[in-house]
Simulated scan of single mutants.
Amino acid sequence: MTDTFQRIAPEQARELLAQGAQLVDIRDAQSFANGHIPGARHLDNQSLHAFIAQADFDQPLIVNCYHGMSSQGAAAFLAQQGFSQVYSLEGGFERWRLMYPQELSRDLG
């Protein structure tokens, strides 16, 4: 078990997601609703413990935020919780949005 994480570029994140990696988005709920990477699960202080309780610790886990800064702290925390492969998305959602504008989801509600 390790308590470290790696930073990965959107290209690498896309490959991992195609292979079944988990993706969590730690931005605020409004930003998440307005647009997020397909398959992302919104994670905040209220949902964190439930996520950890039911998580698959052996699946790679990618953490994204706005610009790739906050996700590093969250990735380190999640690695300490026992996830075997944790990644922080470099450039965060904003970089993904610029690189893959056709690959966005919105909560229509």
Rank of each mutant, 00 (worst) to 15 (best):
P38K: 13
A9D: 15
S88R: 02
L78K: 10
E103D: 15
Q19R: 14
I37Y: 08
M1P: 01
G82K: 13
I8K: 00
S47D: 12
Y66E: 01
I52N: 02
L43Q: 13
H67A: 04
Q30E: 15
D44P: 08
P10V: 01
L17H: 12
T2W: 10
Q102T: 10
G92K: 05
L43A: 04
V86N: 03
P10S: 13
F32R: 07
A75E: 04
G91M: 11
R27L: 10
I62M: 01
S105A: 15
S31E: 06
F77R: 05
S88D: 14
F93H: 08
A76M: 14
S70C: 00
A55E: 13
E90H: 04
Y66F: 10
G91F: 13
S47F: 00
L108T: 12
A9E: 15
A76T: 11
M69W: 04
A55L: 12
A18G: 15
Q59E: 11
S71E: 08
A18T: 07
L104F: 04
W96K: 10
L108V: 11
F83L: 03
L17E: 14
Q81L: 02
E15S: 08
F57C: 00
D107T: 13
G92W: 09
V24I: 15
D107S: 11
A74F: 08
H42I: 01
Q72D: 01
Y87H: 11
C65R: 07
D28V: 12
Q6V: 06
F83N: 11
M99W: 05
F5Q: 03
P101R: 10
L104W: 09
I8L: 06
Q12H: 11
D58Y: 05
V24F: 06
G82W: 07
G91I: 04
Y66I: 04
F93I: 13
M99G: 07
I52P: 02
